[in-house]
């Protein structure tokens, strides 16, 4: 189950992290987070790693797609 995607582009700090944390605490095993700034990318990755999950980053134009998985 991987289709889930969180679109956090353009949201102010710390909303991308809040949404990521929420997805993880609701048992999300594998999902993508979309952000469009380095700051959000760094923050989301830090949050993911703190939850002992893996974050894989792809760049898509101006956006970053962070694939979160166990």
């Amino acid at each position: 189950m991987s289709a889930k995607q969180i679109d956090a582009r353009g949201l102010s700090c710390p909303q991308p992290v809040v949404l990521t944390q929420k997805a993880i605490s609701e048992g999300g095993e594998s999902f993508d987070v979309l952000v469009n700034s380095n700051v959000s990318k760094e923050n989301v990755v830090r949050c993911v790693e703190k939850n002992r999950m893996k974050a894989e980053i792809r760049q898509d134009g101006e956006d970053y797609i962070i694939s979160v998985s166990r």
Partner: peptide
Amino acid sequence: SRFCTMGALRDIILARD
């Protein structure tokens, strides 16, 4: 570095970060 004093306290309260 994204230094932020409000963020410092917020992240502790929000996420123990």
